[in-house]
Design a protein around this nucleic acid. Structure first.
Ligand SMILES: [Mn+2]
Ligand SMILES: [Mn+2]
Ligand SMILES: [Zn+2]
Ligand SMILES: [Zn+2]
Lengths: 137, 137
DNA sequence: CATAGTTTTAGACTACTTCTAATTTTTAAT
DNA sequence: ATTAAAAATTAGAAGTAGTCTAAAACTATG
């Protein structure tokens, strides 16, 4: 019903096995920033026999092939981010939930004056409290 | 020879045991951003019988008492930062070394326009390559 | 000194991730 | 269709980093 995902994987140089498509279907579409075990839990609903090793292998493969980004929160949790274009992050300190901030929402100046440092990329990490009415979903 | 460190700890409400002073002597003075095990390794040179648990306990205590900050790098390593005033970070992607960027070195604008988010703090995380002549020490 | 409270310690334990090596599935060649 | 080779999956073992436990060693106070 969705050859699209398989094509997406093939375009990235990934053989679209059933397991990989099942992982991709969830993790490449969500706006959450799930941990590996959260991905495993989700995917098992539609594909109960998938192993934990395969989920880890697949996520790592997606990161290597640049379909996903991976980063570690201050509490040590590793999460995956389907938004691979550049953006900033807001972390709700109470709930731990991570919100994407559009790249244009913030501006960083004076980067060019960082003598001695060759800047490859950057992001602003904002912490605080998300107000209720900002919830989506 | 240095009652200063003991006083610093007492001022923060910490009993200055020999172990704590030994940890403080290194970790509160360094500009590195060491991991707990790196702290343990350093401190054992002057205090060989200190246990790993004590180093972890002490670092966590210092964080709770706001003498240290703690954060997690994208590779999952937890590091400690003796600079508790606000500043930004530059991470050398080749060496993994972390450099502090003074707060005034960068400016972030449009933060006030983040509707739905109550900002408590923020920092810019820059990645790239530090050029050699910028090395200190 | 006696006692209570605090700190330290070794090693057990936990949570998360990677690795291993055997099996299964897919691909490609005959 | 058979076969062989390559790729992917799997369960569970192993590794890693950090926390917890409970006993021993300190420290502070009466
Ligand atoms: Mn997890
Ligand atoms: Mn460490
Ligand atoms: Zn994101
Ligand atoms: Zn720093």
């Amino acid at each position: 019903m969705r050859p699209l995902i398989a094509d997406h994987l093939r375009n990235a140089g990934i053989q679209p096995s059933a397991q990989r498509v099942a992982v991709a279907e969830y993790v490449l579409a969500t706006e959450d920033h799930p941990t590996a075990d959260q991905v495993w839990a989700k995917v098992r609903k539609s594909f109960p026999m998938i192993s934990r090793a395969t989920v880890y292998n697949t996520l790592n493969l997606f990161v290597k092939k640049r379909l996903l980004r991976q980063f570690v929160l201050n509490d040590g949790k590793t999460v995956f981010d389907a938004r691979v274009s550049r953006h900033h992050h807001f972390i709700d300190e109470e709930t731990g939930r991570i919100y994407d901030l559009p790249w244009e929402a913030l501006a960083v100046s004076k980067l060019e004056s960082l003598n001695g440092f060759e800047v490859r990329e950057y992001q602003v990490v904002v912490r605080g409290r998300a107000k209720n009415y900002s919830r989506r979903g």
